[in-house]
């Protein structure tokens, strides 16, 4: 068997020599059914590339009127004037980044903690229970998070968490001001809960990829479990854990419905976290059904900006995780 029976089709299709030449060669040599099948699944594989390219192309196309009118200044302009038809993405980019970063600051330590618990501590049976719970947390629909965040979490944060925070940190601008009905703060906490499964799951995979030899080396030097984790495991897994966190950041930046429900959709550069704000995604969702004229291309351009932000975040995160899990040290998911 081996090579002769299993020629990797695209190997000869795309790399060794010309595409067409090889297609004909293989058609003459190989089984016709094999060739057709290989070609069909290849088309489906390529369709994923087509969709991705299509997303960029469509958003670019649909946002043309907005791009032509506002130019590059759309990206930083904080204008948002419906009367004068003057729009900018600045306010929404600000809202997106601030909520996503707060969510990340809240979720990253807990997510890595869960991963550490699952990999270094948990007895196997408990491991399954906690693992499933985290999985189900990822399955709860965004809109249900929104409803729960609005009616259940927001009053709780307003009555029990915000007052002590303000008592201690109230002199800082982000914690000053009145806790209004809906808030950036609540939206960020809900986002943190929503990205927790992502951060935890990827961190768990990354920590599992750390070879046990590293753990044993540290333990044999007389380290406690915490010292083993903080001095051998974490430094080894550093880039992957960072990747997990950034992946969570990407999730938070793109999350729509929960934020739309909670944040108040008030296009302003908020100074207090207890005030209202808006994110790119929440603005698109909230304004779509009344959009007309120029607002439609404006929303499309906002979508393009959101796409660019999340793609940059995602690709950098994946590269970091790949660096560790596939490993320059040849350490495949050991």
């Amino acid at each position: 068997m081996g090579e002769a029976a299993w020629p990797s089709l695209p190997d000869c299709f795309f790399i060794r020599r010309g595409v067409i030449l090889n297609l004909f060669k293989r058609l003459r040599r190989g089984n016709l059914g094999d060739n057709i099948f290989g070609f069909v699944v290849l088309l489906f594989g390529v369709s994923i590339l087509v969709i991705m390219a299509g997303i960029v192309f469509q958003l670019w196309l649909q946002s043309a009127p907005s791009r032509e009118k506002f130019g590059w200044s759309f990206l930083w302009s904080t204008a948002y004037d419906v009367q004068r038809q003057n729009y900018g993405a600045g306010v929404f980019i600000y809202g997106t980044l601030v909520t996503a970063f707060i969510a990340l600051i809240l979720a990253a330590p807990v997510g890595v903690g869960i991963a550490a618990y699952l990999v270094e501590i948990a007895p196997r049976r408990l491991n399954r229970v906690v693992g499933s719970m985290v999985e189900l947390l990822a399955a709860v629909p965004s809109i249900v998070y929104g409803l729960w965040g609005f009616y259940a979490l927001n009053p709780f944060l307003r009555d029990y968490i915000a007052p002590p925070l303000q008592a201690v940190l109230g002199w800082l601008p982000p914690f000053s001001g009145e806790f209004v009905g809906t808030s950036v703060f609540t939206a960020s906490v809900v986002l943190a809960i929503m990205i927790l499964p992502t951060v935890a799951a990827v961190s768990r995979d990354v920590l599992r990829a750390v070879p046990d030899a590293q753990r044993e080396a540290m333990l044999a030097l007389g380290a406690t479990r915490w010292e083993m984790f903080s001095r051998a495991v974490l430094p080894y897994a550093k880039s992957g854990v960072l990747g997990a966190a950034i992946l969570g950041l990407g999730r938070a930046a793109g999350e729509t419905m929960a934020v739309t429900f909670i944040i108040g959709n008030n296009p302003q550069i908020f100074k207090s976290l207890f005030g209202q704000g808006a994110t790119i995604a929440s603005e698109i969702a909230a304004k779509w059904q009344e959009a007309s004229g120029l607002t439609l291309p404006v929303l499309m351009e906002l979508g393009l900006v959101l796409f660019a932000i999340t793609i940059i975040i995602n690709i950098s995160a994946r590269l970091l995780v790949m660096l560790l899990v596939r490993g320059p040290r040849g350490g495949l998911r050991a």
């Binding site: 997303i55 958003l59 929303l299 793609i311």
Partner: peptide
């Protein structure tokens, strides 16, 4: 998998 669902909606 990381593309926001709302962006897919716009597309």
């Amino acid at each position: 998998t990381g593309v926001p669902s709302i962006v897919v909606g716009l597309f």
